[in-house]
């Protein structure tokens, strides 16, 4: 399967580290301790969606390769 498209909104990310703890191969903290996507294919989609759901500020958006929004729901 093609890798999902993942974006992190840096006006929302507060460096709570849920994503980097759950999926360290996908997310990494930058200098400002905000999350960046390093490799969207490095974890199963299920885990990426869990990371997005665990983000306390809903900063993570996940789309399928074809552009369907997988998180957040509606």
């Amino acid at each position: 399967m093609d890798a999902p498209r993942i974006t992190v909104d840096h006006t929302r990310c507060v460096g709570n580290a849920q994503c980097v703890t759950l999926a360290p191969a996908v997310f990494r903290h930058n200098e400002a301790v905000q999350s960046e996507v390093v490799d969207p294919s490095a974890a199963p989609l299920e885990l990426i969606l869990k990371a997005a759901r665990f983000c306390p500020t809903s900063a993570i958006r996940v789309e399928s390769a074809s552009g369907a929004v997988l998180f957040p729901a509606s």
């Binding site: 507060v14 460096g15 709570n16 301790v33 500020t57």
Partner: peptide
């Protein structure tokens, strides 16, 4: 956007936000 810090920030960011 309104990136206030009323719930803190970082690893202790408010659990009940």
């Amino acid at each position: 956007p309104n990136p206030h810090v009323s719930f803190g920030s970082g690893i202790h960011y408010c659990l009940g936000a």
